[in-house]
C-alpha cells in the first residue's frame, strides 16, 4: 500500500468549476475522509483519482508513480484501485463469491482461500458466498462491495459515500466494520462523505472541502477543536459563536473571560465554544442565564439558554441525567480553552 499525493488538481464541467487547485497528501495505511456538503466537488476528486474522469490540470501520484499528469494518464483498470460506490453497486447477475473475486486473475478466481480470507475480513459468514446481492441486507451488500474492492490488493481504496443509503444504526456498525477491515488490510483509503460524524469517527485524517477547494486538512480532533474558520466550525459540529475582544491569551465575550488556544492575539473577533464545553452550575460563580427549550436525547440533552439580562442565546450539551427545567435561573461556566477567529462580528449561532 502506498500513499497518495495530489497537486494543484483542477477540473471544470462546462462553466462549472468543480475543483479549483486541490493539494492533498493521503498517508499510506490510513483512512482519509473528504468531508463536504453535496456539490462541493468531493465526488469529482474521487473520480479523478480513480481515473474515470481526466483532470484539466494538476497531478496525481500513487507513491512515486505518477498516474495522472496533464498529457498522460494511466487508465483506471491499470491504477490498482479499489472502488466502493454508493449503495455498493454489486453486480446483480453474480453471486457474492463471484462479485468478490471479479477483479482477480481467472486462475485465482477458483481458489476459495482468498474468498474465505476476504469474507472473514469484512465479518461475513462463509455461507453468504453463495447468495445473490438482492438476498443481502444493505449493510451486508456494502461489506461485500468492500471485500470486492480489497480482493486484488489495491494500492488505494476509494469509498464514495458508501454508508449514505443505510439507516442510522446500520451506518454506525457498518462504518466501524469497514474501517477495521481497511486497517487490518493495511489499506490506504480515501472516503468521501457529507456526514461529519462519519468523518470524525472513522478517519485518521479529515480534509474539509468547500466549493472545489480544501479549506482544512488535519486530524479529527484538530478539525473539531481548531477549525480553520467559523463556517468549518459550524459544518463539523454544533457551534456557539460569540463576538469577542481578544487580549493576549484571553477573550472577553458574553460568557465571560475565556482562555484562548494558540498564540496571543489582539483586537475584535469571534470566539468558538462547543456546546459540551458549557457547564451549568446551580448558584455560585458564572454568568447568569435563563433556561429555555430543552431537547432531550436520552444519553444527553441540549439546553437553549438566554444569558441575563438581555444577552444572546447559547446552547449547551449536558448529560441526559442532569437536565435543568425550563424557566429556571442557572449560572454558566466554560470548560477548557476556546478557539478565536479574527475579523468582523457575527451574530451568535
Amino acid at each position: 500500500m502506498t500513499g497518495l499525493t495530489i497537486r494543484r488538481l483542477s477540473k471544470s464541467f462546462g462553466s462549472v468549476r468543480a475543483l479549483a487547485g486541490v493539494d492533498l497528501d493521503v498517508p499510506a495505511r490510513a483512512l482519509t475522509a473528504i468531508l463536504g456538503p453535496s456539490g462541493c466537488g468531493k465526488t469529482t476528486l474521487l473520480r479523478l483519482v480513480a481515473g474515470f474522469t481526466t483532470p484539466d490540470a494538476g497531478t496525481i501520484a500513487f507513491g512515486d508513480l505518477l498516474v495522472s499528469e496533464p498529457h498522460t494518464a494511466i487508465p483506471p483498470q491499470r491504477r490498482r484501485i479499489g472502488y466502493v460506490p454508493q449503495e455498493g453497486a454489486l453486480f446483480p447477475h453474480l453471486r457474492v463469491a463471484d462479485n468478490i473475486t471479479f477483479g482477480l486473475p481467472s486462475a485465482a478466481r477458483r481458489s476459495r482461500k482468498r474468498l474465505a480470507e476476504l469474507l472473514d475480513l469484512v465479518e461475513l459468514h462463509s455461507s453468504t458466498a453463495e447468495r445473490y446481492p438482492h438476498e443481502l441486507s444493505g449493510g451486508q451488500q456494502q461489506r461485500v462491495a468492500l471485500a470486492r474492492a480489497l480482493a486484488p490488493n489495491p494500492s488505494v481504496v476509494l469509498l464514495d459515500e458508501p454508508f449514505s443509503s443505510l439507516d442510522a444504526n446500520l451506518r454506525l456498525s457498518t462504518g466501524r466494520t469497514v474501517a477495521q477491515a481497511l486497517h487490518a488490510a493495511g489499506a490506504t483509503a480515501l472516503l468521501v462523505t457529507h456526514d461529519q460524524n462519519e468523518a470524525l469517527s472513522l478517519a485518521d485524517q479529515v480534509a474539509v472541502m468547500r466549493e472545489g477547494r480544501l479549506v482544512q486538512v488535519g486530524s479529527p480532533g484538530a478539525v473539531y477543536a481548531t477549525p480553520a474558520d467559523s463556517a468549518v466550525a459550524r459544518f463539523v459540529g454544533d457551534a456557539v459563536l460569540l463576538p469577542a475582544v481578544v487580549t493576549g491569551r484571553t477573550a472577553r465575550c458574553a460568557l465571560g473571560v475565556l482562555s484562548v488556544r494558540g498564540g496571543p492575539g489582539e483586537g475584535q473577533g469571534q470566539v468558538l465554544i462547543r456546546p459540551e464545553q458549557i457547564e451549568i452550575v446551580h448558584g455560585g460563580t458564572g454568568v447568569p442565564a435563563l433556561v429555555g427549550a430543552v431537547t432531550y436525547f436520552g444519553h444527553d440533552a441540549t439546553v437553549a439558554m438566554t444569558i441575563q439580562p438581555d444577552g444572546p442565546t447559547v446552547t449547551a450539551r449536558v448529560s441526559g441525567t442532569r437536565t435543568p427545567d425550563p424557566g429556571t435561573h442557572v449560572h454558566l461556566t466554560v470548560n477548557g480553552p476556546v478557539t478565536t477567529f479574527p475579523g468582523r462580528e457575527t451574530a451568535a449561532a
Binding site: 480513480a50 483506471p76 483498470q77 490498482r80 484501485i81 472502488y83 453497486a89 471479479f102 477483479g103 474492492a149
Partner: peptide, 9 residues
C-alpha cells in the same frame, strides 16, 4: 466503473 477499477478492460 467498478469493473473498470477492478482491472477489466
Amino acid at each position: 466503473d467498478v469493473a473498470h477499477s477492478l482491472g477489466a478492460g
